[in-house]
Computed example of a mutant assay.
Amino acid sequence: MEGKTWVSVSELAATPLGSEEVTETKLVRGTFKTQTKEVKYWLSSVASSLTPMGAALEHASLLLKDWIEAHPSSYPPTVFNFTDDAQTDCSDDELLEKARFLKNLHTEDGNVLLFNCNISTSKQEPIFFPLSRTELPQNDKYAHLMYNLSSDMPEKYAADVAVLRKTDIPTDSVFSAMVYQADDAALVRMLDIGSRSQRTMIGRDK
């Protein structure tokens, strides 16, 4: 909402940017049925040539510091960083330091969680919440940078992530809060898992 830094869910729901008609075809009892419905939207994407990711993380940190001071006992904030390319406003080391500062912010309930999502139009399968960097393309420097930027996911997310990945819950490692080469469906899956919150002590990274 224009002119506001923090917006509640109810305020956001009440003020969409607009709506559009979407046609869906579903299989119902063996018959394909098509229906058109109106869907609201809250974001209007705009493409530009630069990716000031460092500035975005700095700005998020400033906002979160103020919010945490006002809500010290709350569930720790979750930050989603969606990007289609590498940063253009700082070095890799500088970006890592900005991400480290953000992830070290914490409430009494735990650290801020930083999720990173690389949006891609490639035909490669998305890589969901890797357990180690060996799951990433070994010659892709940017994939490994995203891995280093991302938070370790708290244990309470492990069951949901394991179901998504169709793997067992790990006992000697943790999932990384990132999705690489994400299409629209992968982005939604990440949001679904990352936005689930419940009041719990999730521990602090030192």
Rank of each mutant, 00 (worst) to 15 (best):
M1C: 07
T5N: 06
V7G: 01
E11M: 03
E11Y: 01
E11S: 02
L12H: 03
A13W: 06
V22G: 04
T23E: 12
E24F: 10
V28R: 07
V28C: 04
F32M: 15
K33Q: 15
V46A: 05
V46Q: 06
L50A: 12
M53W: 08
A55V: 13
L62S: 13
L62R: 07
L64F: 10
I68Y: 02
I68P: 15
H71G: 14
T78W: 03
D84V: 08
L95C: 10
E97A: 08
F101W: 08
F101R: 13
D109P: 14
F115G: 08
S120G: 10
P126V: 11
I127D: 02
F129K: 03
F129L: 05
S132L: 10
L136H: 02
P137K: 02
Q138G: 09
D140V: 05
H144E: 07
N148Q: 08
N148F: 03
D152H: 03
D152Q: 07
M153L: 09
D160A: 13
V163Y: 05
V163H: 05
K166N: 14
T167F: 06
D168C: 11
F175I: 03
M178L: 14
V179Y: 01
Y180F: 15
D183T: 07
D184F: 10
D184K: 10
A185C: 13
A186H: 04
A186R: 04
R189A: 14
Q198T: 15
R204L: 15
